[in-house]
Design a binder for these strands. Structure first.
Lengths: 246, 246
DNA sequence: ATTTAAATGTGTAAATAATACACATTATTA
DNA sequence: TAATAATGTGTATTATTTACACATTTAAAT
């Protein structure tokens, strides 16, 4: 496991002070955001976690979260917090659910709104490495701090549902990719194995792939054909589908 | 349109005072819940609305909402507020989404969590009729107070999605119902017409209906057969389906 | 009593989508 | 040159969805 770079404790302390004053006031509710950032890497699905700030959860991993500012749009807070904790911008965040059990945070009353995203680990550099920010294989994620295990489970379920409703993953692969790459993506997210022939058939009939007439390079076996996504066709099609965009 | 019974303004005034003090404090965020209660009545889908308390939205309709108490579970707040404003209990509420634009509430910073439900209008008596609490045909709902139109639209979409994933409506019909009743329910929620034969076929193959060998009474046409739901079979089946319960 | 109106009840063919399944081909590596 | 490890391809089967028309039953009207 990778050891994080040197942390910048000053920021964390400040954050904790804010939490203290906000959260220990029994007369109102503090509002936070937690980001569940899923990352696709090679053929694995991972999630971004940091070490918990709190003594109670010392040693445990937790999601990327912080308090919402009083005059800040909720969505804006999610983007700010993600940026602050990871350096990531250019990442689309989607609200998933709000968790508001009264005793979910040991320091006081904090209701949290969970946001989720899915990115390609190779395409995004983490610039901030406080609190041992790392990617974790989702299959090894257990026993997170706070109620973060529940939040994580909820977000993973939602992601799996989404990927079956819409052909996601357009931004998760290199510009040129093989059908094997694409299938790996789906198999990693859904945690299932698929039939190669049926998978290909399905994607070809959807007609979102453009054949580049190029082949993979430097693979230790017969190289596959390379494709790119037909974004234009996808966008047109998307408008016909009912439901919320992703 | 029905005129509400005598209101009990004391409660509303108190609520408003709480909102004032909570919301006008620029140093923190107030948290509220809004309930979108859909009602099925005869063959129409309706929603419960009240007149807005605020001068800014005088005359406009709004959802059933109020502030969450500092030490109250979020879900519990939703049930309390529904009970408080309508007298309804025994109604299952499902969280839909959280709305947190900074300027969504004119009195100050209020983030609201939307909850939604679907009940049979005939099965539930509204005991509290403050602020002209009424059922409104969903097709005539426009221009609600605050961002309530957006919240309403989001909840309606979610309801329509849900009803296509799971056979809802088990509690929305009389114990004995005809297939026409059932089809009316689906057509009202989804706002579409369906083919009668295919609809029947679908429900029979799902095998959730028990033939009661009884006929409708007092209908001005050929009476249909009556059925009841096979709750046991439904519950067994439900466990196999992925996703959140409803 | 007869007719009319308005619904119920029923089956089949066609189209579409989902699934299961096996072998020849191509490039790399040993 | 042989072995390895993938890619690329097609068809039959099954299940699901859709489209569609006519005889039947009751109540209400004449």
């Amino acid at each position: 496991m990778i050891t994080g770079e040197k942390t910048t404790p000053a920021k964390n302390i400040k954050t904790l002070q804010v939490i203290q004053s906000e959260v220990e006031n029994k007369n109102h509710i503090a509002l936070s955001v937690d980001c569940v950032i899923f990352g696709f890497d090679e053929a694995k699905l991972e999630v971004l976690l940091i070490r918990s700030d709190l003594k109670k959860y010392a040693g445990k991993w937790s999601l990327l979260g912080d308090l919402v500012f009083p005059s800040e749009d909720l969505d804006a807070a999610a983007y700010r917090i993600l940026k602050q904790r990871t350096g990531l911008s250019d990442v689309y965040l989607e609200q998933v659910s709000t968790f508001g059990t009264a005793n979910r945070h040991p320091a006081g009353r904090v209701v949290t709104v969970a946001y989720c995203s899915l990115i390609n680990v190779q395409h995004h550099k983490l610039n901030i490495l406080d609190n041992e920010l790392h990617w974790h294989d989702i299959k090894k994620v257990t026993d997170l701090a706070f109620d973060h295990q529940q939040i994580f489970d909820t977000c993973l379920k939602q992601l799996q549902k989404r990927v079956q409703e819409h052909p996601l993953g357009f931004n998760l692969l290199p510009k040129k990719f093989s059908l094997r790459d694409l299938q790996n993506l789906y198999e990693a997210i859904l945690d299932i194995k698929m039939d190669r022939r049926n998978f290909r058939k399905k994607f070809f009939t959807m007609d979102f792939l453009i054949d580049l007439n190029e082949m993979e390079q430097d693979v230790p076996h017969r190289p596959g054909k390379l494709y790119k996504f037909n974004f234009e066709k996808y966008e047109k099609q998307k408008k016909k589908w009912i439901g919320i965009d992703f």
